[in-house]
Design a protein around this nucleic acid. Structure first.
Length: 595
RNA sequence: GGUUCCGUAGCUCAGUUGGAUAGAGCAACAGCCUUCUAAGCUGUGGGUCGCGAGUUCGACUCUCGCCGGAAUCACCA
């Protein structure tokens, strides 16, 4: 409609002022609630063509449009704003059209679909997932759904950071203090058990370095020269050399962690098409580095460590292989990127990684470019903000974290408590109720995370927990469940929505308002894809739910005596529920039929 | 110190390529269930959009400078 209006206005300007006005000067926006009308033309930019006052210009354009374009039923001018009213017939026609489409997302299809790789999650195998990872996983998975909805071929990948000094830390601690403890013997989830030893390592290290610091050694030196740290470095060397004992320990502990991760992923409802392991890709990276060294793209320091000079790119020097020959984080990321491009030939590769690594990805992109991989232009760091606690950021090393598994089960428990308090679902079987509480608890959690602009840091206050009223997932789920309930009742009483024809009925203002909002769904999804922002979809679903709830409150649907009007309202409800379902699905949020 | 990001109601967050009187929720207070699910709806109070300039017909939005916060600049990941 905006496009048609723009064209009509252009024609009008040609007739009235005999001038060809560039399109970007014709600014159409939705009319604000406080004014009458549907779309508003900002006339200020047009004054140089009309050579008239804003009011007069608006009047002239308005009356010309209204008399030549039947869809415009009226207009008014406030200051420099021309508010155009679209006829109810147009809205009704539009609504009938979308009501007959089985999948509105078809409207979001892009002209040229791309192969897009989305990397998300990227856990370390030395500790369990926490709230920060939840944000990462939800964002990554939602981006996958949104981009797929627009017709792209999206591949979900995960890179598991399963090697490196930090992994050796928990291995070493387990070796020294574990007494052979296993998930089976302790009853602990594997990732939690390994995480426990990571914390123990840090605790013991702190003791050792504390002793050294008491002798006057600086903190950093103390940490590095503590015996435990030396042992960890030695273990990494052994690992890279393929020492059997170390490898066996590594494999065993990693398998514990993977079992734990799988369970958390399953609960969160996320999955992957392809999982990469740093333990495999770092070698590719190392070879790349050595090849680039031969080509003099990189240089070797006197201590035989290998570096990239990115001065020209404004990015300083970057270490790529340590003096002892072991790889760093960047090394494996180079290898992973090249491997992925070989395997998928992607157009775009999105890295869902926290904004603390902005610099890392600038360097990665520049390095690949320097090495001659022009496709590195397609790499995009989807940089999201940190989840902080009221006291500041979470600290895995000290165990000050909001654990993912704990939080998920707390949410489900809360959903149960709230439901019970409200006296709902009392006639349901336990298994059915469990399933509903799971959907609601996770819906609350996921929505809480996804409604926030991904770029921004966000605060999570554990003591306040997550709400179930207002701008929340359960609110939207509730709206959906209400609509489903209406349809169940309609079935029982033999009233069907598809039997009636509502041509010619006059819709109320609230009903038109609902249609206007329904219309925004597909644009919102496209915008969310372009801006990589699930939050836009989340906030849209909330807005729609609010609007529908007002409609639901003000009007009777099944109690409406006029059959045409009744079917219209049923159709409005049907399209609303379909959009809510579809929109929330893009966020990875499931909808309960009852709650 | 360099670079990047952030600062909107008591709290958590929206706010489109610069457009009209800056919006929601939570919390507080006051109403609405004999009627399709009250996890809902309606209303009241609450703002120097960090501060100050500049550009513009018009700035929460763009530019510059301050103030405050965060991240990063590792032979950590």
């Amino acid at each position: 409609m905006e496009r048609i209006l723009k064209e009509k206005i252009r024609e009008t300007l040609k007739v009235l002022y005999n001038s060809d006005v560039p399109e970007d000067l014709i600014q159409i926006q939705e009319t604000r609630k406080d004014f009458r009308g549907d779309f508003t033309l900002v006339v200020f930019p047009l004054l140089r063509y009309s050579k008239n006052t804003p009011e007069k210009t608006g009047e002239n354009i308005g009356s010309h449009i209204a008399s030549t374009f039947p869809a415009v039923s009226g207009f008014n001018v406030v200051k420099g704003f021309l508010n155009l009213e679209i006829s109810d017939e147009w809205w009704m026609d539009y609504f009938r059209k979308i009501a007959s489409e089985s999948d509105l997302l078809q409207r979001c299809q892009v002209k040229s679909p791309e192969v897009i790789l989305v990397e998300y999650s990227s856990p370390n195998t030395n500790k369990p997932l926490h709230l920060g990872h939840i944000r990462n996983n939800l964002l990554g998975f939602s981006l996958f759904r949104i981009l797929s909805a627009c017709g792209h071929k999206v591949i979900k990948t995960n890179i598991v950071n399963d090697r490196g000094i930090h992994i050796c830390k928990s291995m070493l601690a387990w070796q020294k203090y574990g007494n052979g403890e296993t998930p089976a013997s302790s009853g602990m989830k594997g990732d939690h058990l390994v995480g426990k030893y990571y914390v123990i390592f840090e605790k013991e290290l702190k003791l050792q370095s504390g002793e050294l610091m008491a002798k006057g050694i600086a903190e950093e030196d103390a940490r590095n020269s503590a015996p435990l740290m030396k042992d960890a470095r030695e273990m990494l060397l052994k690992w890279e050399a393929g020492n059997k004992e170390v490898m066996d320990l590594w494999k065993m502990m990693n398998s514990w962690v993977y079992a734990g991760f799988d369970e958390t992923y399953r609960k969160l409802g996320v999955d992957f098409d392809k999982i990469y392991y740093e333990s495999e890709t770092y070698k590719i990276g190392r070879d790349l580095v050595l090849t680039a060294l031969d080509k003099h793209i990189l240089y070797r320091n006197t201590d035989s460590s290998i570096w990239a000079d990115l001065d020209a790119e404004g990015l300083d020097q970057k270490l790529l292989l340590r003096s002892d020959g072991t790889a760093v984080y960047m090394t494996q990321d180079l290898g992973t990127a090249v491997l992925r491009h070989e395997e998928y030939g992607f157009n775009r590769c999105l890295y869902v990684v926290g904004n603390e690594q902005n610099y890392h990805f600038q360097v990665l992109k520049a390095l690949l470019k320097k090495m001659g991989y022009d496709w590195s232009d397609g790499l995009f760091h989807f940089s999201y903000g940190m989840v902080e606690l009221p006291e500041g950021r979470m600290k895995s090393r000290e165990g000050i974290i909001v654990d993912a598994d704990d939080l998920i089960s707390e949410m489900i428990t809360t959903a149960r408590d709230v439901s019970q308090e409200l006296g709902k679902l009392s006639d349901f079987a336990e298994a059915e109720k469990d399933e509903i509480f799971r959907k609601i608890g996770l819906g609350a959690l996921k929505y809480f995370i996804l409604k926030v602009d991904p770029k921004k840091n966000m605060t999570f206050n554990p003591s306040e927990s997550i709400d179930f009223n207002g701008n929340t997932g359960p609110f939207i789920q509730y709206t959906y469940a209400r609509i489903k309930s209406v349809f169940r009742k309609a079935d029982q009483t033999g009233i069907r929505s598809d039997t009636g024809d509502y041509t010619g009925i006059k819709a109320g203002e609230k009903e038109i308002a609902l249609i206007r909002l329904l219309r925004k769904f597909t644009d919102t999804v496209s915008e969310a894809a372009n801006n990589y922002s699930p939050a836009l979809v989340a906030n849209y679903c909330y807005e729609l739910s609010k609007e529908y709830n007002q409609f639901y409150h003000d009007f009777s649907i099944l109690g409406e005596p006029d059959p045409a009007r009744r079917s219209f309202r049923l159709d409005l409800s049907k399209v609303t529920s379909a959009i809510l379902y579809s929109g929330m699905n893009l966020l990875g949020i499931e909808m309960p039929e009852r709650m």
